[in-house]
Amino acid sequence: MSALLTRLPARWRAHRALLGGDGRWDDAHVVGDDDGVLLAASSDAGPSLFGLGDVRRVGALLDAEVAHPEAGSLLDRTGFVDRARWLTVPRGTTPSARVLAALRLAPFSTWDWLAADAVPAAWAADPRVVRLDPLVDAAAIRACLAVANPGTSADPTHPGEAGWWGVRGGDGLVGVVGASLRGGGPGRAPSWHLHGLGVRPEARGRGVGTALTATVLADGLAAGCAFVSLGMYADNERARGVYERLGFRTGLECASFGPRGADRPAP
């Protein structure tokens, strides 16, 4: 991540969403300025693109770098000029039809990125929540997610996992959540990104999701994280209320575009 920060315009070097980004962005190509910036991270399936800043500036960068991918353009530097793996931009940015056609992408979701850096004063550890073994408990975690959160791309055996937590019921896990380790480096504390939160239907309404989220927040901060982050679909007001009561605040409002027919976010 330190190498990426040196390539960013000054305004974006302390942005939490970048400080808490996963490893794919470490070698990302960057264009833009303090008004708006566009990152492209290479992969075998095409680049992942991420924009920050003024929606008009980000839209203009997309037009310049994607709709007309000349030699040396952002898209050209990733090794692909005819597709992308994923695109995320500030909500309100309207990628042109030409941009989406060039990337072979379609609208997928609107979502928010939130972060918290303190445990609520009234929080107390919930004895229902236990730390899981991502390898030993992998099958049980996946079985819970298949019912509780079938659209997630989170998996306990993915590289970079900080941990998984669960609540057990009579027939196995009734709720789970994971966290991935993000950012960090010389003189900078890392962060955790909460993902894969799911509660089986029969256990909902009992505070299981709140207990899991609060535990990850407390454990992450106790482990030395600068903050704990998460993403949520923008229309999930019930979840938003839970997160805000735990101290999470919105840092980004996003729109994502994925391959046509995608049924879950890119991992």
Rank of each mutant, 00 (worst) to 15 (best):
A218R: 15
P120Y: 03
L100V: 08
G224R: 14
W164R: 04
G23V: 10
F248Q: 04
G20N: 07
M1S: 13
A239M: 08
D34V: 09
C225L: 13
V147P: 00
P127T: 01
S2M: 10
H193W: 07
S73C: 08
G185R: 04
R83Q: 14
H68A: 15
V176I: 01
L61D: 11
T78I: 15
W111Y: 07
A101M: 05
E161R: 15
A226F: 05
D82Y: 06
G196L: 06
L145K: 02
G198P: 03
L87W: 04
G92V: 03
Y243W: 06
D22H: 13
L135V: 15
G172F: 03
D82Q: 07
R11S: 12
E237Q: 08
G59N: 05
G196C: 07
L4Q: 03
G151L: 12
G224N: 14
D235L: 07
L194K: 00
V136A: 15
G20I: 06
A116H: 02
G51V: 07
H29A: 15
S109L: 00
A41W: 06
L114P: 00
I141E: 05
R16T: 14
G59T: 04
A121H: 11
V174M: 00
E244G: 06
A162K: 07
V66M: 13
H68F: 07
R200K: 03
D22W: 12
L62N: 08
G72K: 02
P267D: 15
C144N: 07
S43F: 02
V147A: 11
P159Q: 05
T213C: 09
R206P: 00
G151Q: 12
G20H: 04
G184R: 14
T94V: 15
V174H: 00
L75H: 09
A41P: 07
A162F: 04
G172M: 05
R24N: 00
L114T: 01
T152R: 03
I141L: 09
G163T: 05
D137N: 11
D126V: 01
G166R: 11
G32Y: 08
